[in-house]
Design a protein around this nucleic acid. Structure first.
Length: 276
DNA sequence: AGCTCATGGCGAG
DNA sequence: TCGCCCTGAGCTG
């Protein structure tokens, strides 16, 4: 269940544990069997992430393009008997490690040329050094869609998911329903740099921690609220609980089929963030 | 045992 | 905008 930081960590781990060496490959479930057989015994050169896309490169020009979707998991496991083979799409192993892919939205064998197009087709990814936020600004500043919807658009903010969008809007005090076109340029710049900081931090820690500065739960006299995803957050999945900053009940609403969380007092209607 | 929901995205209307 | 796909955790009974 990934936002971009999970994919970047995966790419790093796959490169560290398998990079530059031959790997074994199988598809116990059978749905990736043909491709898996081609890769079996070949050298995995490296893995790379762009947004929520994972690209696993093999010598000879083969690339596995993985997208975990909402429920996919790619995990390292201890060597041992095969558990639940009916859901095990891809198993990758060597004498050093075993990795298991289950429930991905897709897992396809492509060429390195196609992989290049996946990277080019992605929006800027705040975690990557080559990201150009100007590309996001040019599109954001021309749409009246709510800024909360735009933040989930992978052509503008690759790797941002439901947690990062809710948290970054809260941290900057922005009304999630503000038409994107009304967001001042200087606030966009703050938004982008906050995403860079939060997302890169999450790559390092493996969890999304957004509660920082003077408004820690401790300073508010409340027990820290840890979300099941493992990190500590202001509003994500906290509907009905008091805002950690002002005590107002956190709100939730459906926005294009996803739950949106925000504090109606800290992010009042029409607020463009910045200096309140 | 069965239901609901989840850090996502696609394609049909 | 809705239904659908993939899996598994956390409820409810």
């Amino acid at each position: 269940m990934p936002e971009g930081h999970v994919i970047h960590r995966l790419a790093r781990a796959l490169t560290e544990r398998f990079g530059g060496r031959p790997v074994r490959s199988s598809s116990p479930q059978g749905r990736f069997a043909e491709a898996s057989e081609i890769l079996d015994g070949t050298v995995l050169s490296r893995a790379e992430a762009v947004g929520k896309h994972l690209l696993v490169y093999f010598e000879g020009g083969n690339v596995v393009w993985v997208h975990l979707g909402l429920i996919g998991k790619f995990r390292f496991v201890d060597p041992g008997p095969l558990l639940s083979p009916q859901t095990l799409r891809w198993r990758l192993w060597s004498d050093r490690a075993v990795a298991e892919l289950r429930g991905p939205q897709w897992c396809r064998l492509i060429t390195s040329e196609e992989a290049e197009r996946v990277i080019e087709g992605s929006g800027p990814d705040p975690i990557r050094a080559d990201a150009d936020p100007q590309r996001a600004w040019e599109r954001l500043s021309r749409t009246r869609r709510p800024v909360a919807a735009v933040l989930m658009d992978q052509k503008l903010f690759a790797g941002v998911g439901n947690i990062f969008r809710a948290e970054v809007l809260f941290r900057l005090g922005i009304d999630p329903y503000l038409p994107a076109v009304d967001l001042p340029r200087e606030v966009f710049d703050e938004l982008w740099s906050d995403l860079v900081a939060l997302m890169r931090d999450a790559v390092g820690s493996g969890r999304i921690d957004t509660v920082a500065g003077v408004h820690t739960p401790e300073s508010m006299g409340r027990a820290p609220r840890e979300d099941p995803h493992g990190g500590e957050v202001y509003v994500y999945r906290r509907a009905g609980f008091p805002c950690l900053v002002c005590g107002t009940e956190v709100a939730v609403a459906d926005l294009s089929g996803r739950n949106l969380y925000w504090c109606p007092s800290c992010q009042p209607e029409g607020s463009t963030g910045g200096v309140q």
